[in-house]
């Protein structure tokens, strides 16, 4: 059996200020999975992602990316991951083209490959006209697209998307869905966090609920609904956060508690 794309065992993260952001999280994502990580604000989703990509240092547990330990074998582990972070973190001095070009360089891509790949991704994300513009001249949605292009630049085998559709227009959201489904079908494993449950429902084969630094439940959307004895993912989520009364299923008159 091939190594899991991402294997996290008993991961713990306590920030220097004492916040226990992760308290023994374990998940396994198989190659080719489209995995959703859902949970309320502050649940620890970004922390888990940062621990995986070297931006935060775990205080306990293990992380392996395609079998490579994220700490002791960080070079191989990070080379396999493409990260689109939650916060837009573009360098304002660089143009769109340079942003991709440098990123490719950090991952050891050769010049010719960098040029071709950057042009291809700028085209894919409708940024070709902005190739030579500095990133600060982009609109919010364009910045999001550039961040996605950057995450894909080095052809990662595991793509991590931390709330990629926050604040983007409907066209871009749908475009993005199509795009990630396409690359997932081509074999790229995807870890997605989102607060849009229909997005998770539509895209993710498997979903984990995280709350207060712990995994509360995981499985398919149907598994989760069954686990909380409700009819859909949204109600399962509401059950997770203890807000069943907000359920929209009631309104339809179908289900009563």
């Amino acid at each position: 059996m091939p190594a899991p794309a991402l294997e996290i065992v008993d991961l713990q993260k306590r920030y220097p200020n004492g916040v226990e952001a992760l308290r023994g999280v374990s998940i396994g994502i198989q190659p080719g999975d489209f995995f959703g990580l859902l949970g309320p604000n502050g649940a620890g989703k970004s922390t888990l992602i940062h621990c995986t990509t070297g931006l935060a240092q775990p205080t306990g547990g293990e992380i392996r990316v395609f079998g490579h330990d994220a700490i002791s074998d960080y070079g191989e582990a990070r080379a396999a991951v493409g990260l689109a972070p939650q916060e837009v973190n573009l360098d304002q001095f660089l143009t769109c083209e340079e942003t991709l070009e440098f990123h490719g360089g950090y991952f050891g891509m050769r010049k010719r490959d960098r040029k071709e790949r950057a042009a291809e991704l700028l085209e894919t994300f409708s940024l070709t006209a902005k190739a030579r513009e500095r990133t600060r001249a982009l609109s919010g949605g364009m910045k999001r697209r550039l961040i996605l292009a950057r995450a894909l630049m080095h052809r990662p085998r595991l793509l991590i998307l931390d709330e990629p559709t926050a604040g983007v227009d409907i066209e871009l959201r749908l475009e993005l869905w199509h795009y990630v489904q396409k690359i997932n079908a081509e074999g790229v494993t995807i870890l997605l966090t989102t607060h849009y449950l229909e997005e998770a429902d539509q895209l993710c084969g498997r979903i984990a609920f995280i709350a207060d630094g712990q995994i509360a439940a995981q499985g398919t959307s149907e598994d989760l609904a069954a686990r909380y004895d409700v009819v859909n993912l949204e109600d399962a989520y509401l059950a997770l956060v203890g807000r069943r009364e907000l359920s929209r299923s009631h309104v339809d008159g179908g289900v009563t508690a």
């Binding site: 191989e76 304002q92 440098f102």
Partner: peptide
């Protein structure tokens, strides 16, 4: 500057030692 904008995360999450 790069810390401030978070742009340094691009280098920090790369395989660079």
């Amino acid at each position: 500057q790069q810390k401030f904008l978070g742009a340094i995360h691009d280098q920090l999450s790369s395989p660079a030692s």
